[in-house]
Design a binder for these strands. Structure first.
Lengths: 197, 197
DNA sequence: TCCACCATGTAACTGGTTACATGATTAC
DNA sequence: GTAATCATGTAACCAGTTACATGGTGGA
């Protein structure tokens, strides 16, 4: 069973936090600062169907409280496993090459599913990968700066600065995680049908 | 005639710099630090066909120099106009919401097609848009920080830091553009058949 | 001769976009 | 009653991905 599209993992992660309907998930994308994702019904509902076809989630209609019928999705054990597998993946250089969106998404949901200790390890790996990647970009720049046109050089420098700011952020995030006591991680909590909303 | 996909504009901009074959363009994406774009033949060749169908580029086979036949693409007047229209578009907040990739792409090719003076204006607009956008993110963070889970808050802060580094970069880029004398801009130069490679 | 690279293309699949359709419930 | 919002879905379209196919050319 191969990779899911990013949206699929984002959905798994959100459903892991709380069993949700398609509408809930759309709101989550539209309202929170997770702006990156689609939130259009034409993306969410088919994606949920695909996840269900792969038995990563299961949707059950809930007619509670006089509302219109909503189909609440729950993670299956397979789904939980798939989510963890994704979160626990080693961080490759390629995860940085087109921006660190996927890495950040993983970070955002990692604590809950894998615990603070693992998250700290991830942050350190992230920091090291960024350091290496920045070094590569720097040497590319040093070798080509003179023969590059000014706007191209500046655009590259903008990218490098962006990665540098992310590198600084990893240190900041690690500090925040050190201050925060390592509480027993919540991955133990199983979401069962019944704790609706 | 509506928007092209980003890849289309990237191709127009590269072809504007130098008439190129599909292979040249693939190399440009694969080798230079423009890593963001596809470079796969299944993306480039169909995209070129679409551009040609819209009469934005014209491909002519060139059998020069004993090499295998290559189809060199040139910008048409329509293509030149479309490129400029895209480059000259006002910068909206939405151009920042999912990362500034398109804005940076425009910047990278703007000088050549619209001149240094316009590029300076663009950079100032970019700076101001970033400032406003960062202010919005900051106030969102201030209002929600306490009720956000730690990883979510940190992820948002990472994003804010990234935009801030871009803001700093605009100042840096403007300085670079001020030092550089405003030479008569190269948009005058027309690429004609004959300066092949 | 054979390999590496130049160069172009095609086909099947995938998933996301926009736009539309539908209907239930709540608040005024 | 009617407007806003909750809630789910569908269809047509579009472009990008992977994988494959093909053949020319130059150098070992």
């Amino acid at each position: 069973m191969s990779d899911l599209p990013l949206l699929g993992y984002a959905l798994l992660a959100l459903i892991d936090q709380k069993p949700s309907s398609g509408y809930d998930l759309r709101k989550a994308f539209a309202e929170t600062a997770m702006g990156n994702y689609s939130s259009s019904p034409g993306a969410i509902y088919p994606a949920l169907e695909r996840l269900e076809a792969q038995r990563l989630v299961r949707g059950v209609v809930s007619k509670s409280a006089g509302l219109r019928r909503r189909r609440l999705y729950y993670l299956t054990l397979r789904g939980k496993a798939e989510l963890k597998k994704w979160l626990a993946r080693p961080l490759e250089e390629i995860d940085l090459m087109r921006g660190a969106g996927e890495a950040m998404l993983r970070f955002a949901f990692m604590d809950r599913a894998l615990g603070a200790t693992y998250t700290r390890v991830f942050l350190r790996n992230f920091r090291d990968a960024l350091k290496a990647y920045i070094a590569g970009l720097d040497s590319y720049l040093a070798q080509n700066a003179t023969r590059m046109p000014l706007p191209g050089r500046l655009a590259l420098e903008c990218g490098i600065r962006g990665y540098r700011s992310m590198y600084d952020w990893t240190a900041y995030a690690l500090r925040a995680y050190r201050q925060q006591p390592t509480k027993p991680h919540s991955a133990v909590r199983k979401s069962k049908p019944g704790d609706s909303r």
